[in-house]
Amino acid sequence: MIIKINGKYYKIKKIEKNPNGKYTITTENGKKYEFKNVKIFSEEELK
């Protein structure tokens, strides 16, 4: 799965839903981001 952050695309390693309704997304390079609204892309959609 792929996520778009600030115009760049990252591969997703893990998605966790937090009790506060936000999502914590861990990218393949180990960085964590927290979002309220998340749009996930499949690799097929990006081709």
Rank of each mutant, 00 (worst) to 15 (best):
I25E: 00
N18Y: 05
K13F: 09
G7Q: 07
K22E: 11
L46I: 14
K32D: 05
I40W: 15
I2T: 08
K31P: 03
K14F: 11
Y10F: 10
N29G: 13
I3W: 03
I40H: 06
N6M: 09
K36F: 12
G7Y: 02
K4H: 08
T24Y: 10
E45L: 10
K47S: 11
K13Y: 11
N29R: 05
T26P: 00
T27D: 06
N18C: 12
I5A: 06
K32Y: 05
K32H: 07
E28D: 08
F35N: 02
K36C: 15
Y33E: 01
V38L: 13
N37E: 13
K32G: 02
K13G: 06
E45M: 11
K14S: 14
E16V: 12
K32N: 05
E34H: 09
G30S: 01
F41K: 06
E45Q: 12
K11R: 13
K4M: 14
N37A: 09
K22D: 11
Y23P: 00
K47Y: 03
Y10C: 08
E16Q: 08
E44N: 10
T26H: 07
V38E: 04
G21S: 02
E45V: 07
L46Y: 06
F35D: 02
G21V: 00
I2H: 12
I5F: 05
K22L: 14
E34Y: 13
K11N: 06
I3S: 01
I2R: 08
N37T: 14
I3K: 01
I15Y: 03
I2S: 09
G30V: 00
T24A: 06
S42E: 07
I15W: 05
Y10Q: 09
S42L: 14
I12G: 00
T27Q: 01
I2P: 01
N18A: 11
T24K: 03
K13T: 14
K22G: 15
I5M: 06
K47I: 13
E43H: 04
Y23K: 01
Y23S: 02
L46G: 08
K31S: 10
I3P: 00
K36T: 15
K13S: 12
K17I: 13
F35M: 13
I25Q: 00
T26W: 15
Y33R: 02
K22T: 15
Y33G: 01
I3A: 08
E43L: 02
V38K: 04
N18E: 09
E44M: 07
E43Y: 04
Y10K: 03
E45K: 07
N37Q: 11
E34P: 02
K22F: 14
E45I: 10
N29W: 05
K39E: 15
N6C: 12
G7F: 02
P19S: 12
K13N: 07
E28I: 14
K32W: 04
K11I: 09
E43F: 03
Y9F: 12
N20T: 06
K36L: 13
Y23N: 01
K22W: 15
E43Q: 04
E16Y: 05
G7V: 01
N18P: 02
L46M: 12
Y33L: 06
I2L: 15
I15V: 10
N37D: 14
K17Y: 10
K13L: 14
K11L: 07
T26C: 02
N37M: 07
I15C: 10
T24W: 08
I15G: 00
P19K: 12
K32E: 14
K39F: 14
E34V: 12
K11G: 04
K13E: 09
T27W: 04
K14G: 09
K4A: 10
E34L: 06
P19F: 06
T26S: 02
K22C: 15
I3T: 03
K32I: 14
V38R: 03
K17A: 07
F35C: 15
K36Y: 14
I3V: 11
T27Y: 04
K4S: 09
K47D: 10
G30L: 02
G7P: 00
E44A: 08
P19I: 12
I12H: 00
F41Q: 07
G21Y: 01
E45F: 07
N20L: 04
K39Q: 13
T26Q: 03
Y10R: 04
F41C: 15
Y9N: 04
E44V: 07
E34C: 11
N29H: 08
M1C: 11
Y23G: 00
I25F: 04
T27M: 15
N29K: 06
Y9P: 03
K14N: 11
I5H: 04
K8Q: 10
K39R: 13
K31V: 09
Y10T: 07
T26A: 01
T27E: 01
G30K: 01
I3M: 07
Y10W: 07
K11P: 05
E28R: 07
K13Q: 12
G30W: 01
I25V: 14
Y9G: 02
M1S: 07
T24Q: 07
T27H: 02
V38T: 04
K47G: 13
K36N: 13
E44K: 06
E34S: 10
I2F: 15
I25D: 00
N37R: 08
L46C: 15
K47M: 09
F41L: 12
T26D: 01
I2V: 13
G7T: 03
G7K: 04
K4P: 02
N37S: 13
Y33P: 00
K39W: 10
Y9D: 03
K13R: 10
E34A: 04
E44F: 02
G30R: 01
S42I: 12
N6E: 09
K8L: 09
I25G: 00
K47W: 02
K47A: 13
G30H: 02
K11M: 06
P19E: 13
S42K: 08
K39D: 12
G21F: 02
I25A: 02
F35P: 02
K32L: 07
I12K: 00
L46V: 11
G21K: 02
K17V: 11
T24I: 15
F41H: 08
Y23H: 03
E28G: 05
E45D: 14
K8P: 01
K47F: 03
K11T: 06
I40K: 04
K14I: 08
Y9H: 05
I12F: 02
E44Q: 10
I3C: 08
N20G: 06
E16F: 07
F35Q: 05
N6W: 09
I40V: 09
P19R: 10
I3D: 00
I15F: 06
I12D: 00
V38Y: 04
Y10A: 04
I15E: 00
I25R: 00
S42C: 15
K22H: 13
I40P: 05
K36M: 13
I5P: 00
I40T: 06
Y10E: 09
N20C: 05
N6Q: 11
S42D: 09
T24H: 04
K14Y: 10
E45A: 10
V38M: 09
T27L: 15
F35R: 07
N29F: 07
K14V: 10
T24G: 02
I40E: 05
P19M: 12
E28L: 14
K32V: 15
T24M: 09
Y33I: 08
Y9A: 04
I2Y: 15
K13P: 02
P19T: 14
I40Q: 07
G21E: 02
E16G: 03
K17P: 04
T27S: 03
N6A: 12
N20Q: 05
K39I: 13
K17W: 09
F41M: 10
E28T: 14
E43S: 03
L46K: 08
K8C: 15
N29D: 15
T24N: 04
N18M: 14
I25S: 00
E45G: 09
I2E: 04
P19V: 11
I40M: 09
E43N: 04
N20F: 04
I25M: 02
T27P: 00
K31A: 11
Y33M: 06
P19L: 09
K36A: 15
G30F: 01
T26I: 11
Y33K: 02
I40S: 05
N37L: 05
G21I: 00
N6P: 00
N37V: 11
N37Y: 15
E16I: 08
N18K: 11
L46S: 07
E45P: 07
K4R: 12
Y23C: 06
I15R: 00
G21R: 02
K32C: 09
S42V: 12
I15N: 00
E28M: 14
Y9Q: 04
E44T: 08
N6V: 03
K11E: 04
N37G: 07
N20D: 12
T24S: 06
T24E: 10
Y10D: 02
Y23M: 08
F35A: 10
I5D: 01
Y23L: 10
E43K: 03
E44D: 13
E28N: 09
K22P: 03
K14A: 13
E44H: 10
K39C: 15
Y10P: 00
F41D: 04
K36H: 11
V38D: 06
Y33T: 02
T24P: 00
Y33S: 01
E45R: 05
V38G: 10
N6R: 10
I12Q: 00
M1L: 15
N29Y: 08
E16W: 04
E45T: 10
L46E: 06
K13I: 14
K31M: 12
G30Q: 01
E16T: 11
F35W: 04
T26V: 09
K4Q: 13
M1E: 04
N29C: 11
N6Y: 10
K22R: 14
Y9V: 06
K13V: 15
I15A: 03
G30D: 07
K32F: 06
T24L: 12
I12E: 00
T24C: 06
I5T: 01
N20W: 04
S42R: 09
E16R: 05
V38A: 07
K14E: 12
F35T: 10
T26L: 07
K14P: 00
E44P: 09
N29S: 12
G21C: 03
S42F: 15
K17E: 06
N37W: 15
E34F: 10
Y9L: 09
V38S: 05
K11Q: 07
N6G: 13
I12T: 02
K14D: 08
K32M: 11
E43R: 01
G7W: 01
K11D: 03
E34R: 07
I25H: 00
